[in-house]
Amino acid sequence: MFCLLLSDYMSRQALNALFPMLKLQWGLSDTQLGSVSSIVPLAVGVLTLPFSLVADRWGRAKSITLMAGLWSVATLGCAIAANYHEMFVARMFVGVGEAAYGSVGLAMLIGIFPKRMRSSIVGGFTSAAAFGSVLGVSLSGIIATHLGWRWSMGMMAIFGLVLVIVYGVVVTEKRMACVCADETDDAAVHDRLAWAPRALLSSLFPSRSVLCAYLGSALQLFIQGTLFVWLPSYLNRYWGMPVGKAAVVAAGLVLVSGLGQFLCGVITDWVSGNSSLRRWNMAIGYCLALGVLLEFAFRLPPGNLQLALLAPAVFFLASSFSTCGAIIAGATSPTIHGSAFATLTLFNNILGLAAGPFVTGMVSDAVGLQIALRWLPVAAILPLTMYLLGRWCHCAQARR
């Protein structure tokens, strides 16, 4: 499951390291470059809930095999694209293939591990997104430097197709039924009773605090999506790094983000135990640290001191997965965890990972990428507000 999520994000993020080459070869604007990146999370956000509902009923293991095969073939389509429009269509199908993998995969894992480990499991599994981004961006930049950008995308596709074959052999519906027998029995009852739209909606949004968790996670990922996409270009333009070196340095920062994503989950479980209130407190603390460190970092001129502040800042970049994921899992029924995580994915991708690179690309075309990133820390105010409001709603609900 972890390796497939690696492939997911390698296919998604590999193109970011190739922006300077595509900009030169096809004469693309930053808005166009942002759009071929943003179309993937946009497709994921739009399709994640319906695809997750289908996967819950048709079979999660079979659905994942089909999805992984589709995003790998679509990545191969990116390698043979002849212009911007063909690349855009191929990237859209990458998003279609990846649409429900994160939510369905996380629901499978949550059903296997104990409740006290939820933040660790959510943080550990989803940290593959950061590690996959590291591998995708760094390997893509290196391969493109020596063999050309088309080989970069082709290698990502081959890696995904090999994993699909391995996954299809190792993970089957029969094996999952053995380890998740209780959840399967509950899901059968849920299939009969709670698939009506109104009942499902009330189950996905049982309280205002859960809505705040969805929104807070998505708004924090606006920052993550922006940095993952635009850091290689920022290092290339303003630090004067060649494409390959910029990709490697950006990948190092993303690696720090992945380590932070996992460790924040472990720390949150250790501090919070079974207390949702403490998880809200951790979310607030992580988001505040992210905003302050980014503000100091991007106000400095390009150089080693800026890099020294960016590293601890990105450590907290994806902390919302481990905090908000566990909060939502604790507030919703286990029988709809797949749909709940799909809803979280919808919010994360449309308001966060899709909006961040595209909006930043538009601002960059208007005032320059350096100024656009300088104002990025201001965006941390929005998730911080949602976390504070969610904590207040949680306390009010507990008093009632």
Rank of each mutant, 00 (worst) to 15 (best):
S11W: 08
S11C: 15
A14R: 03
A14K: 08
N16S: 14
L18V: 12
K23S: 15
L28A: 00
D30M: 11
T31E: 09
S35C: 06
V36R: 05
L42N: 05
T48V: 07
P50N: 05
S52Q: 00
A55T: 00
G59L: 05
K62P: 02
S63F: 13
S63W: 10
L66S: 07
A68S: 15
L70T: 11
T75R: 10
G77W: 11
N83M: 12
E86R: 07
M87C: 12
M92A: 13
F93M: 02
V94D: 10
V96L: 12
A100M: 04
G105A: 15
L109H: 05
I110G: 03
F113L: 03
F113A: 04
P114Q: 02
K115P: 05
S120C: 05
I121Y: 06
G123Y: 00
T126S: 12
A130C: 11
A130Y: 06
F131A: 06
G132N: 09
S133Q: 04
V134P: 00
H146F: 09
G148V: 00
W151L: 02
S152T: 02
M153Y: 03
M153W: 07
G154P: 05
I158Y: 06
F159W: 12
L161K: 05
V166H: 07
Y167H: 09
Y167F: 14
G168F: 10
G168K: 15
V171P: 02
T172K: 08
T172Y: 03
R175C: 06
C178D: 13
C178W: 07
V179L: 08
C180V: 11
D182L: 12
A188W: 10
V189Y: 14
H190R: 13
H190G: 09
R192M: 12
W195C: 12
A196W: 04
R198Y: 08
L204T: 00
S207H: 02
R208N: 00
S209V: 06
V210P: 05
G216V: 10
L219Q: 02
F222K: 04
T226V: 06
V229C: 12
L235Q: 10
G240L: 03
A247G: 07
A250K: 04
A250N: 00
A251N: 06
G252L: 08
L259P: 01
V266M: 15
I267P: 04
D269K: 05
S275R: 11
L277E: 11
R278D: 03
R278H: 03
W280V: 02
W280I: 03
N281M: 11
N281Y: 09
M282I: 13
A283M: 12
G285M: 00
C287S: 13
L290F: 11
Q306H: 08
L309A: 14
P312M: 11
F316I: 01
L317K: 00
S322G: 03
A326N: 10
A329L: 03
T332N: 06
T332F: 07
T335R: 11
G338P: 02
A340P: 01
T345F: 02
L346I: 06
F347N: 01
N349A: 00
V359N: 05
G361S: 07
V367W: 10
L369S: 08
I371M: 15
L373Y: 08
A380N: 09
I381P: 06
P383R: 04
Y387C: 10
C395I: 15
Q397A: 12
